[in-house]
Design a protein around this nucleic acid. Structure first.
Length: 794
DNA sequence: GCGGCGCTACTACCT
DNA sequence: ACAGGTAGTAGCGCCGCG
């Protein structure tokens, strides 16, 4: 029979010493299916040294064959390695786990230059080789397998190859959000001691909450966990979403389940529990476990990535429409009968917000998955570099190009982009021009990549010579990166024009929009990937060539602008800020296109824009009255809320109204409020990320000192955590007075520190250029200030 | 013992 | 766990100072 299905994920099992690929999917009516394919075998390549006889090598390889996973095939095949045709051995065995062993033995054989593609996980190998791409539709000839009772899905055996089906929109994916609350009376919850008190789940229709039971012996969570397991089995979701569920909920639940002797049997393979897998994600057999925190991480505008902040920012659940409880006080709400109702509301809001986030993030994740081939549950957990790498590996397979091994190497830094010295002050009517995808287009134009690099002599008409660095790249044939980037940019263009056929609120339009975003992300990551020492296709000279070309390009663009009499105010990497003289700007765009053969476009026009002497910092007033703040304290996550608020307001007053005195009065008022204790302590918290384990700091900056205080009080801090602290009164270093805000008494806050080190510097950063001094903001002193206010009011 | 100075450490931003 | 360029604060060691 023919089966049409949407592919969710692949995995494999070894049965009777043979691997069977499990293809998890959904029919168009949304029923789970499992398609078994036992025809696929693990393999890898042996790359010989020059002039080594392949037949002899093949014989030697074969002698290594051992049960239970013999070497079943050694073939001589033609592939390409860094673009050059090579003859290699394709070595096939039976059990995927034995690949590593063979790889190590074969590596030691004389005449073997390298063993390639022996480190690609079997399920991913299948995805690439059979083009079994997650989040896309397939049609296949299958037969039903009746005797399979181990799975919570209808089981088929694959009889044909997979045929891509012409469908785009996913079927009805059953999504469930879950979230646990934990009893934490002694700081951070410890799974060995602290039970789970609530497990909440929401499927888009109904919230379920499974509560721990209290008896004389304490809180018991076994029942709640059991009920949750039954609930998941009954609901049978395709996607399970959580917020930091890979980092917290799953590991915690697994540990509690173990302690309670409960099997966390929530997958589609009966009896199988979730387990740690690639990129630190947790894999739930047969379902897609997606941690939305991974995607939240990519929203730069939100500095504190808590569920409530992210949900608020995305409009999923506004902070003022929900119950909030400080995480370190959750246990109090459990202990108190009245407060427990609030706790239940809180847990309910959390799980509904989590579900809401899935609606925001999954459409993009699905497109990224369909492009990279990484299953949906891994694509979020994988970093940008790995996402691109999987895409490259798919493309390499298509081109018959061998995938280089990952190598341990030291990063070599190199020169980057140009940043122009800004012309400080206020400028009127400024156009910001951007090169479209500058680095990808330079890579295409100059055919840059590891396989097109020429080390020796090269005829001038056959090679591009890169300015400054002098590297040479063959003009023909197009290299791997050029091919990949051309495809990415072409697809993106196609998708964007396809979008025009649909109304903006239609499902297809939205799908295509997410797809073009995913294509853009991959294209833009390619240059950085090439300069990443962890990349399989690492190529420092290539990255160096790209930045050199970028510098040359922007210099030439500046020359063109100047020759047209266009004043350049500022520029960074691929952008130029110029006086917006419409005719000249149009001519500029035309000439850049013609002379540099690159597209430059107007990104925005500022009615007014303000620069200090600092690079990478400006404030711009847009035509519609909105104000862009770039680089300044107001957009940084490590300045207090109050300082950021003041700076933003000052910027707006000065730029939109041109009223310096109004700005001064405003700052004075805030300082007075602060001194009067009218500012909430939450606006005085300084947040800084712990970027390494505490022991690895050579100095003791305030956030590290605060983190040490947290640890002392029983809290766990981990790398990547944001430490929030306030500065309290007293003597000595700031570090000596940096107290975690959850432990601080508002009475102890050193208000003068905040005046001197937060509000005044943030305000002055802008006001200084309008002739305002520190004294004008604060120097008048407290007493006279009050008098001034008094007179002011009369 | 302490303020000033210059350097280093550290973080978060921009493109 | 994609790159380099940049601004800015605080820590820290050193110097001078009867």
């Amino acid at each position: 029979m023919k089966l049409l299905f949407y592919l969710l994920d692949t995995s494999y099992e070894v049965r009777d010493n043979r691997p069977v690929i499990l293809i998890w999917g959904l029919t168009d009516s949304g029923d789970p299916v499992l398609i078994l394919d036992d025809t696929f075998r693990p393999y890898f390549y042996v790359l010989p040294e020059d002039k080594v006889d392949l037949t002899t090598l093949a014989t030697r390889v074969k002698t290594l064959s051992r049960p239970p996973s013999p070497i079943t095939k050694v073939e001589m095949v033609e592939r390409r390695y860094y673009g050059k045709p090579v003859k290699v051995l394709r070595v096939e065995t039976v059990i995927p786990e034995f690949v590593r062993e063979y790889r190590e033995k074969i590596r030691k054989i004389e005449g073997v230059r390298d063993v390639l593609e022996a480190d690609i996980r079997f399920a991913m190998r299948y995805i690439i080789d059979r083009s079994a791409i997650p989040c896309t539709w397939y049609e296949a000839e299958v037969e039903e397998v009746e005797e399979e009772r181990r799975y919570r899905a209808r089981v088929y055996r694959l009889l044909s190859g997979l045929k891509q089906a012409k469908r785009d929109l996913p079927p009805d994916l059953k999504v469930v959000a879950f979230d646990i609350e934990v009893y934490n009376p002694a700081g951070s919850p410890r799974p060995k001691h602290d039970p789970v008190i609530i497990i909440a789940a929401y499927d888009g229709r109904e919230v379920k909450q499974f509560l721990a039971e209290e008896s004389g012996k304490g809180i018991r969570d076994a029942g709640a966990i059991r009920s949750f397991v039954s609930y998941v089995k009954e609901l049978d979701p395709d996607i399970i979403v959580g917020y930091n569920s890979n980092g917290f909920d799953w590991p915690y639940l697994l540990e509690r389940a173990k302690i309670n002797n409960v099997r966390l049997d929530v997958g589609r393979v009966k009896g199988a529990e979730p387990r740690s897998s690639a990129y630190g994600h947790i894999s739930v057999p047969g379902r897609l476990n997606v941690d939305l925190y991974d995607f939240a991480q990519e929203i730069g505008e939100v500095k504190i990535k808590s569920l409530e902040e992210v949900a608020d920012y995305l409009g999923v659940m506004k902070k003022d429409e929900r119950v909030l409880i400080p995480w370190y006080r959750l246990y109090e709400y459990w202990d108190n009968e009245e407060k427990r109702r609030t706790l239940l509301r809180y847990s309910r809001d959390d799980v509904i917000a989590t579900y809401g986030l899935s609606e925001k993030f999954l459409p993009f994740a699905i497109q990224l998955s369909a492009l990279t081939g990484l299953p949906l549950d891994q694509v979020g957990a994988a970093s940008v570099g790995y996402r691109l790498e999987w895409y490259l590996m798919r493309e390499a397979f298509r081109f018959g190009e061998l995938v280089p091994n990952r190598a341990e190497r030291r990063a070599e830094s190199y020169k980057g982009a140009i940043v122009l010295e800004p012309k400080k002050g206020v400028h009127e009517n400024i156009a910001v021009l951007d090169f479209s995808s500058m680095y990808p287009n330079l890579m295409i134009k100059y055919n840059i990549g590891p396989d097109t690099f020429v080390e020796g002599e090269c005829e001038e008409d056959e090679c591009y010579v890169i300015p400054e660095v002098g590297y040479k790249f063959r003009k023909e044939p197009p290299g791997f990166f050029k091919n990949v980037l051309t495809t990415l940019l072409r697809l993106r263009k196609q998708v964007k024009s396809e979008m025009k056929k649909y109304p903006p609120d239609s499902p297809m339009y939205r799908l295509l929009n997410e797809r073009q975003k995913a294509l853009k992300v991959l294209a833009n990551a390619t240059y950085g990937y090439m300069g990443w020492s962890g990349a399989r296709w690492y190529f420092r000279q290539g990255a160096e060539a790209v930045t050199a070309l970028g510098r040359a390009t922007i210099r030439m663009a500046i020359e063109i602008a100047k020759s047209l009499g266009l004043e350049v105010i500022y520029g960074d990497t691929d952008s130029l800020f110029v006086k917006y003289d419409k005719d000249r700007v149009e001519e500029f765009i035309r000439r850049v296109g013609e002379e540099l053969e690159l597209e430059i476009k107007i990104d925005k026009v500022y009615r007014r824009v303000f620069f200090t002497e600092a690079k990478k910092r400006y404030v711009g007033l847009l035509e519609d009255g909105r104000v862009d703040i770039v680089g300044f304290e107001a957009v940084r996550g490590d300045w207090t809320e109050i300082a950021k608020e003041v700076q933003e307001e000052v910027a707006k007053i000065v730029l939109s109204k041109g009223e310096v005195s109004e700005a001064i009065n405003y700052v004075r008022k805030v300082i007075a409020d602060l001194r009067a204790g009218k500012i909430d302590i939450t606006k005085l918290v300084i947040w800084k990320t712990l970027t390494r384990p505490i022991s690895q700091y050579t100095a003791e900056p305030p956030h590290v000192a605060a983190a040490k205080r947290l640890i002392k009080a029983g809290y766990k801090v981990e790398v990547g955590d944001k430490i929030g602290y306030v500065v309290v009164k007293g003597a000595g270093r700031i570090s000596d007075r940096a107290v975690p805000y959850i432990m601080a008494d508002p009475k102890d806050v050193d208000v003068e520190y905040y005046v001197k080190h937060q509000i005044i510097p943030a305000a002055l950063r802008i006001l200084r250029y309008f002739g305002v001094s520190e004294k004008a903001l604060e120097g008048v002193g407290k007493a006279r200030k009050t008098l001034l206010d008094f007179f002011g009011k009369r």
